[in-house]
Design a binder for these strands. Structure first.
Lengths: 142, 142
DNA sequence: CTTACTGTTATTATATTGATTACAGTTAGA
DNA sequence: TCTAACTGTAATCAATATAATAACAGTAAG
């Protein structure tokens, strides 16, 4: 799993939480605990898909541009981490005589595709609002 | 996802496919396309759980010691890749004042645990036999 | 007692990931 | 119009994770 997924979810939750629904990359980076440039990279993806708006120049930053009740983690997964279930390394070798060696890569590919579908279904059940709610519950339970 | 999962599944399928249900680490490594030492490492895990038996010395190798109809990919996942859904990198910082920063790591942790459960459920639907069947189908479709 | 195996650890090479730097472009406000 | 505070983006460096390889002890068949 790509950790840009985590950054995207965290950033949207933070924007949804803030009263003005706005924050600079410095503020987000500090909250998330990473480098502002990394945040800007992830936010650029979110901006291109319309989840946030970016304002350059003084007083600028990122503004939430979606409904946290409707945006699911599945969308964030697709945006940031699609394909990450399948390992980079593949077994087998198309050139061999053995039926197993020849076809295992393709079969594992199918299996990993199915696994990713399952994962996306699961993430589809979580909205940004749900994440915020969980954060609140976690806070209260202290 | 850990690619040792792939090696474990491929190796069991290969053993199940071979008439004598036996192969050396060299043979498996060649079939899988990796180094024999890596195969031995994975097979040692399978042996400790009783999925295969190992015979040392001349004429030795690994022998299938389980029913391919019953062993599922979920077991292979647990054995080789448990925890791999959650990225190594975590956002947030317990020390901060912000409710989001403080609790996001815990919440994401819950979310990734749920995701892994989903994945394991899915892998539980696949047996080694199913993998072999898929390989056969793939071969026929050429 | 030699040869062909497994078991295991250590080391090295490679790939992936994240941090950091750098700088161009933008905009508000003095 | 100039400056300061932003984003956008690419390039580079550092850290980490992954896979390959080497090495060698232990074991068993012939």
């Amino acid at each position: 799993m790509n950790s840009e997924f985590t950054i995207a979810v965290h950033s949207l939750a933070l924007l949804a939480y803030r009263p003005d629904h706005m924050a600079t990359s410095d503020m987000i980076a500090h909250n998330v605990c990473t480098h502002p440039a990394r945040v800007r990279k992830v936010m650029a993806m979110l901006r291109k898909q319309g989840y946030v708006a970016a304002k350059e120049g003084i007083g600028g930053g990122f503004l939430l541009n979606c409904n946290p009740d409707e945006v699911t983690l599945a969308e964030m997964y697709r945006l940031t981490s699609m394909g990450s279930v399948k390992p980079g390394w593949c077994s087998g070798d198309e050139e061999q005589d053995c039926m197993i060696a020849c076809n295992m890569a393709t079969v594992m590919d199918h299996i990993f595709s199915g696994a990713e579908k399952q994962l996306i279904d699961y993430f589809g059940q979580w909205t940004i609002r749900d994440v915020l709610e969980q954060v609140r519950k976690e806070q209260q339970s202290k």
